[in-house]
Structure formats: structure tokens, C-alpha cells
């Protein structure tokens, strides 16, 4: 008993190291399961799904919002999987990217950003309308949530939406990013997601940084920098467009 207590206190004190060990096991299990299913290449996709499953389980038990990072022994996951190291690693993936490839998709990449934001926004707002929301503020906030889970609350608080609607917009964005991670490796062969140019368009259309990064990592890690380079502009541009131009359009249609 004492030994277990001592071990767990050692782990709690070194939770970042613990997170390396646990992620290593998750990736080994992911590769093993992917091998069993006959798709060795999907190893990281399976590991990501395991991660999401653990986050769901931990969230239910702890009642927290940070997945397994709310479990004391695994709090190191908050650092390893947090925005700081994620951005650091995303930047490093640009090492080896070719200037010519980026130039080839330059204009389409930028166009896909605007198309992607407006498209997700109107899909989200249409769903909200179909399910009974009528005020321009509510529709805009939920539409912004379908852009990303950061754009939703940013827009909602700028427009003075109720906290219930803001929570919905966050949930819509989280659904998008989770689904993006899960679906991308499955649909990649059907949407031609196998070259730098389509990866840039993909990043611009989907835009959710974690979803794009996770999805592309599972398809082909070589494509990550191309998708990430457009996706990183998406949230900022969305936070700019949703409470301004797109809200004005909604207000013209639905009144103030």
C-alpha cells in the first residue's frame, strides 16, 4: 500500500514525464489496433481516437473541461498537449516544406480561407434557424461556433449573446474539431487529400487548428505543414469576419 502511495506521489510530482510514458503506450496501442484492422497507416488516427475516448471518460469522472489533464497524475498532458508545444511542433514541421509547393497553391489557399469561413458560418446559422433560433445575434453566434470553438465565444461576447448560446457555439466548434480529426483520414482518399495543394485548401476550408493538424497527421505527416499554414489564419480571420461583415448580413436578413 505504502509503495503504491509512494509511486503515485512520484508520478504526480513528475506528471510531464508521465504524460510521455502514457502517450507512448497510446501510440503503441494505436499502431497495434490499426495493424489488427489491416490499416497500419491509420495508427496515429486510432491513437487520436483513443485520446478522445480517454478525454470523454476522464471528463465524465472529474467533471472538468480539460480531459485527462484534470486527473492529477496525468496533469502533464496539459503541457504536452497544450497550445504552446503544439504550436512549437507545428512550426517545426514547416522544416522541409518547399517554397514552390506553397506558391502553387498560394491564391487558392487564400481564397479557400474566405470560402471556408463563410461556408461553415452559413451552414451553422442555417442549422440553428432550422432548429428554431430566430435572432440575428443567436444565429451569428452559433454560425461562428461552426467556424471554430474560439470564433464562437469571441463573436458571442462581442454581440452580447446569452451564455447558453455561447456554450452551444463552443460545443459546435468542438464537434467540428473532433469530427475533423476522426473523419479526415477516412475520407482522404475520396477528396484527393494526398498532395500539398489540396492540403492547403483543406486547411483553409476546415480551419480548426487541432482538427486540421490531427486529421492531416493521421493521413500523412508530410502534409501537415501545408494544411497548418492556411489553418492558422482561419481562426483570426473568422474572429474578424463573424462579428462584423457576417453579423451585418444576418442583421439585414433577420433584423436587429
Amino acid at each position: 500500500m505504502n509503495l503504491i502511495q509512494m509511486a503515485s506521489s512520484v508520478i504526480e510530482k513528475n506528471s510531464l514525464v508521465m504524460s510521455f510514458a502514457v502517450v507512448a503506450v497510446m501510440i503503441l496501442v494505436g499502431n497495434w489496433l490499426a495493424g489488427l484492422m489491416g490499416g497500419k497507416r491509420l495508427g496515429s488516427a486510432v491513437a487520436i481516437v483513443i485520446g478522445l475516448g480517454l478525454a470523454l471518460y476522464a471528463g465524465r469522472i472529474t467533471g472538468g473541461s480539460r480531459g485527462i489533464a484534470d486527473v492529477k497524475m496525468l496533469s502533464g498532458f496539459g503541457i504536452l498537449g497544450g497550445a504552446m508545444l503544439r504550436d512549437f511542433a507545428i512550426i517545426s514541421t514547416a522544416f522541409g516544406a518547399k517554397v514552390e509547393e506553397l506558391k502553387k497553391a498560394g491564391l487558392v489557399g487564400i481564397a479557400s480561407l474566405f470560402i471556408g469561413i463563410a461556408f461553415s458560418f452559413f451552414v451553422g446559422a442555417t442549422v440553428a434557424f432550422a432548429l428554431g433560433y430566430r435572432s440575428a445575434v443567436d444565429l451569428t453566434t452559433i454560425g461562428a461556433g461552426a467556424v471554430t470553438f474560439i470564433v464562437g465565444p469571441v463573436t458571442g461576447s462581442a454581440l452580447g449573446a446569452s451564455s447558453a448560446v455561447v456554450a452551444l457555439s463552443i460545443a459546435a466548434g468542438v464537434v467540428k474539431s473532433v469530427l475533423c480529426m476522426v473523419l479526415t483520414p477516412l475520407v482522404a482518399p475520396y477528396i484527393g487529400l494526398n498532395n500539398p495543394q489540396s492540403a492547403m485548401v483543406f486547411g483553409g476550408l476546415l480551419g480548426t487548428t487541432s482538427g486540421v493538424a490531427g486529421g492531416l497527421a493521421a493521413v500523412d505527416p508530410k502534409l501537415v505543414p501545408y494544411g497548418a499554414v492556411t489553418a492558422t489564419f482561419y481562426t483570426g480571420l473568422g474572429a474578424l469576419l463573424c462579428p462584423s461583415v457576417l453579423f451585418l448580413i444576418m442583421r439585414m436578413i433577420f433584423g436587429a
Partner: peptide
């Protein structure tokens, strides 16, 4: 990069994604 993304997946608020109900699920 991939281990970091796996760790990132494990700290998502999946509970709230599922709790959002039909609007959140359909919109997203």
C-alpha cells in the same frame, strides 16, 4: 508532433461536445 497531437486529443472537452445536443452536433 504526432505524440503531441495525441496528447492534445486527450485533453479536449469531449463531454461538452456531446452535451451540446442537436444544434451543436448538427451545426458542427
Amino acid at each position: 508532433y504526432i505524440p503531441i497531437i495525441v496528447a492534445m486529443a486527450a485533453i479536449q472537452n469531449v463531454v461538452s461536445a456531446l452535451k451540446g445536443g442537436a444544434v451543436a452536433f448538427l451545426a458542427g
